[in-house]
Nucleic acid binder design. Structure first.
Lengths: 158, 158
DNA sequence: GTTTCCGTACTCGGATAAAGGATGTCCGAGTTTAAATGG
DNA sequence: CCATTTAAACTCGGACATCCTTTATCCGAGTACGGAAAC
């Protein structure tokens, strides 16, 4: 089971956009150079965050990307869901109903599969952790990063 | 993020082998027919469970597969780890160190990344749930399934 | 001075391709059991 | 009746083939800003 690499990109970008919120939109060229990421593909992933209402993008010569909401109102779960999709990692194919195993199990099969239920509960625990923290938490987590980001961005843009 | 379909296969097979524990080894042909699964690929996945010490396989005309330990001593986490690998779903590539973002962050970068830490804690919560339940729990979860499995298996083998 | 036009720097969305992992199939080789064979 | 051979039913491990997702690139089209040109 593997989570896409762009989740790390998306979270770092959200935190950075949070720190640069008063600087106006940040162009994809600068964001990609910021973390040394492939520009075109990063753009495509950030578009998913726009569709999810997490980011805003504006065209034009002064355009770019910015947070659509205050960082306190964007959970890490929001970002992960936008980038990885809302489907659960474990998808029950109900193989218990197939083949010989499925013969003659009447009322028993009306009840949900115990395995699927357990996997769902485990995933809920995971989601709960991610939903309990916001971009603002991550921003506060490294105050030195905030200052350094603003300074480096000034160098870059000025 | 997607979990392989064979996790469902492996868990159902372990539960079934737990129910048929006093019947001796079960051949791959019967296991595959049991759930209507591709026989050769199922075999390959169960071999991963053998390497992890969860199952035992014996060659020969009366050979087949059986649990290597009592079902109370096999956690769901064991099975998932054997089939999906021990690596975490989120792998931090430390993009914060690259590009402009990495310039001049001395002592700050010695500390672990807050994003990676949060993802790790979330995954720990997930693993904790899976490690808290065993194959025996799943077996007890559907007593009707146990009886029906034994009966259908008798029909199949007799 | 005001309006119009144009170039620049962006984003948007689709088409396409490369890479890797999950899924699925096939085959030769080894191992155990049970039946068949020979004494 | 006992020992030996043979056949059958398995597993093991590797080599492939296929499909799908992720990652990545490219390009035409649209949009906003700022300056230049026209009036």
């Amino acid at each position: 089971m593997r989570m896409g690499e762009s989740v790390e990109w998306g979270l770092h970008c959200c935190v950075t956009l949070g720190w640069l919120r008063d600087q106006g939109p940040v162009s994809i060229r600068r964001l990609a150079a910021w973390f040394d990421l492939p520009q075109e593909y990063l753009k495509k992933r950030l578009q998913a965050l726009v569709r999810a209402g997490i980011l805003t993008s504006s065209p034009g010569v002064r355009g770019g990307w910015s947070l659509a909401r205050p960082p306190e109102q964007i959970t890490v779960m929001d970002v992960v869901t936008a980038l990885e999709g809302a489907e659960e990692a474990f998808r029950c194919a109900e193989i218990r109903l197939r083949g010989e195993s499925g013969r003659g199990g009447g009322a028993e099969f009306a009840r949900p599969c115990g395995i699927a239920g357990l996997m769902r509960r485990a995933e809920l625990a995971w989601r709960r952790e991610l939903a309990a923290h916001t971009i603002a938490d991550l921003m506060e987590g490294s105050p030195a990063g905030a200052e350094r980001t603003r300074r480096n961005y000034q160098d870059m843009t000025g």
